[in-house]
């Protein structure tokens, strides 16, 4: 499945900083990944690792004090960072669409669901009101909303959280985009509703020629939906490879730490292997490798010199000086058994 499609998006050394009164917060500071047609890239990381800012940077949706200061976002061969606002407006929604975490705040509370879906259709395809409305009903049906003819006239507050997220998905799919970015689309939902939405997304992906970027903090969600995974920490991609490799042969101490620190439904764990310390503040990142104060593989070199994202084998890149030591321990210490 991997590398089967054409290269759709290549993000190269993306840097987005926030120029705040307290200093420069390097929210995204060196993000590289590629997305191919037909695949799902999972971006995983904890709060403030820069995963959402990466998405907003690709869409060029950042306002002051946030600014993309470096790198390239090559979408279908063209660098989006060089596009004007006018050109971006033609791309957003039509070529690249986004699903946000909190559907209640992402939807406009004073406009009907139907209007909000129609808006993009009328803007991008010059559809008439009636055509757009019919298409909206079709889309609502496609995302599994019962009685779409009735729902199309309702307001977001009349819908449950799960329904709202379905509306968001309908909106995102309305113009048949080639890239869909979903930013924690199920985080605010209950587990059973999350399962419904993931199920819906999986079934929609079946007939989808484009690609999906799934941003989440939940390794379980990633294991279910992603083909390839980028693990982010402190504004950087620290490990980038396919799903099986991430779960079975992680080479970055942070990935390894995350995998052994989560309580598991499929395993009996004696004790959680907690990563010590706290997630660093983007205003005060440590020198050297950003993970070094929390890393148990740390050496003097890690404190002084920042490693770059290096390809260690085909399709597996890691940002760490101690790959060999981590690899050895991960082979012994990882509890991912065949179930």
């Amino acid at each position: 499945m991997l590398d089967s499609g054409k290269l759709l998006l290549a993000v190269k050394d993306l840097r987005t900083y926030f120029f705040t009164e307290e200093g420069i917060a390097k929210a995204v500071d060196g993000v590289d990944f590629e997305v191919y047609e037909g695949e799902t890239l999972g971006i995983v990381g904890e709060s403030a690792c820069g995963k959402s800012v990466t998405a907003f940077s690709i869409m060029k949706l950042l306002d002051y004090p946030g600014k993309t200061v470096g790198g390239e976002v090559i979408f279908k061969g063209e660098n989006l960072l060089e596009k004007s606002e006018e050109e971006m407006r033609r791309i957003r929604g039509k070529e690249i669409a986004m699903i946000f975490q909190e559907p209640m705040t992402a939807l406009n509370p004073i406009l009907t669901v139907g209007f909000q879906i129609s808006e993009a259709l009328m803007a991008h395809f010059k559809m008439s009101k009636e055509e757009a409305r019919d298409r909206s009903i079709e889309l609502l049906k496609k995302v599994g909303i019962p009685l779409p003819e009735q729902r199309v006239n309702e307001y977001p507050y009349q819908l449950s959280g799960g329904m709202r997220q379905r509306v968001m998905i309908a909106m995102a799919l309305s113009c048949d985009p080639s890239l869909l970015i979903a930013d924690e689309p199920t985080t605010a939902l209950d587990v059973t509703i999350q399962a419904q939405i993931l199920d819906l997304m999986r079934s929609l992906l079946q007939g989808f020629k484009g690609a999906l970027i799934m941003i989440t903090h939940d390794l379980g969600v990633i294991a279910e939906i992603a083909d390839r995974i980028a693990v982010m920490y402190a504004g950087k991609v620290v490990e980038y490879t396919d799903k099986r490799t991430i779960f079975y042969y992680p080479l970055h101490p942070y990935t390894f730490g995350l995998l052994t620190s989560i309580p598991r439904l499929d395993l009996e764990l004696p004790r959680l292997n907690a990563i010590p310390g706290v997630v660093p503040d983007p205003l005060h990142f440590p020198a050297g490798c950003k993970f070094n104060p929390r890393c148990r593989f740390v050496t003097e070199r890690c404190k002084e010199e920042e490693p770059s994202l290096v390809k260690v084998e085909e399709g597996h890149s890691v940002r760490c000086w101690n790959v060999e030591r981590v690899s050895k321990e991960a082979k012994e210490g990882l509890l991912v058994g065949e179930v």
Partner: peptide, 14 residues
């Protein structure tokens, strides 16, 4: 249903 809905961080968990 609740148990089956939990996403499990194991690519081979069936």
């Amino acid at each position: 249903a609740l148990i089956s809905a939990v996403p499990v961080p194991n690519p081979d968990y069936k």
